[in-house]
Design a protein around this nucleic acid. Structure first.
Lengths: 223, 223
DNA sequence: TGCTTTCGCTACGGGTCGTAGCGTAACTGG
DNA sequence: CCAGTTACGCTACGACCCGTAGCGAAAGCA
């Protein structure tokens, strides 16, 4: 398995005081943080997640596995939740919107990609646990949305744009209405696949994907 | 808020040995278990869940609140997870399939009911956490499916049957195909509403429900 | 009146979280 | 080259929770 590329925002804590002082780009003064440690910690988090699941993920384990002191983890992330957000977010970056020539095949491709991602043990162990914590901690939920959920809405937007360019969909008339439509499509795809895989525990077959795509295409397939 | 009726299966552990001996219905011999304690524990679990969330739910808290010794909890449920399954399952029994005269209004009514249920703090705190644990513990997942998920599929079946009786839907041709259709519809409704409420964190408005229903009805609305 | 099982209580071992204190390592500016 | 600043590894700690064990007492049955 290829090592996932580091997340866009490796650090979670701010170096120095909270108030921004002096120049905008503060030149670090002391010993710089080890970038290798960042990667080692995130990798160790994903590996431990895959092997032991959320319940078995302890800061001690991660630290040992990353060959790093436990205190080093707490210097970067305030809590286990934030660490896992960063560790998991990068997994979603591999999702891409292909342009296969028809809206139907594009949707099927994305659904299949998402199903494969959810089949991986580290995703499976972390995603729902993270969402669960998010229901209680509004700040964590915001981080989840910013790092994981919202970035993936690009897939829906890209797919819509391609279909509009092909003439399969009407062009947008109202920006607000378009945004709501993107949201509803996204929630439907993400929620349904998650529920099927993680709750019902049944596999995503090609036939299921085909049926589900029919549902999503809705009125278009009636013609 | 009205006290929820007790779950169908109050006990989780078997009294006596695992091997079934003698008569089928084993007549209890010693001091019987307090039925009042069962209800007090389940109520205390829901209340604590609503106030402190999953993370704040400890067996000690529940025991204290139910005015019961902690050991009494462990005599009935082997672990926190199983206790919460029973405590939460009864919340879902209040969902009903109304017969409002059209498939469209029936769907909207159920979606609204489900959204209201998910808006309640005890449901919100417990459901995703439970699902998350279920991804790691196959036995717990089975209990979740049997106690929470599968029973609610009746709603989809009832709605379909009513629509078929009205002539809005074609009668079933193949039993297997019908079962798959029920599954896909159920996963779509449950998953999408859960994702919208619990992950995206946005409210379910009447307008959203209307749009989502359009999506579900699919080809029918094109006519 | 015995027998059986539950009940409340107290205490315990094992594990995790997140923090504090220390001496040392790395890097920067004078 | 040397002081200042920051990160690092290590160890230890208090607080909390889990799940179990042991005890005497209570509540039903034969």
């Amino acid at each position: 398995m290829p090592a996932a590329q580091p997340s866009a925002s490796p650090d979670c804590t701010v170096r120095g005081s909270t108030v921004q002082e002096g120049a905008s780009a503060s030149r670090a003064k002391g010993r710089p943080r080890s970038a290798a440690a960042d990667l080692a910690i995130l990798d160790a988090t994903r590996e431990t997640l895959a092997e032991l699941g959320w319940g078995g993920l302890t800061m001690g384990h991660v630290a040992t596995r990353a060959k790093v002191a436990k205190t080093t983890l707490y210097r970067r992330w305030p809590s286990k939740n934030e660490l896992v957000v960063d560790a998991v977010a990068s997994l979603f970056d591999e999702l891409v919107m292909p342009d296969l020539g028809s809206l139907r095949s594009d949707i099927q491709a994305v659904v299949t990609q998402f199903a494969d991602l959810l089949a991986r043990p580290e995703t499976q162990a972390a995603l729902l646990a993270l969402f669960a914590e998010g229901t209680r901690d509004p700040q964590l939920r915001r981080r989840i949305r910013e790092a994981i959920v919202d970035p993936q809405k690009r897939l829906v937007r890209q797919g819509r744009a391609a279909a509009q360019a092909r003439g399969e969909l009407e062009p947008d008339t109202d920006a607000e209405s378009a945004r709501e439509e993107v949201d509803i499509i996204f929630d439907t795809i993400a929620g349904t696949v998650e529920h099927r895989v993680l709750v019902s525990g049944e596999p995503i077959t090609a036939e299921w994907t085909s049926r589900f795509t029919d549902l999503l295409l809705g009125p278009l397939t009636a013609a």
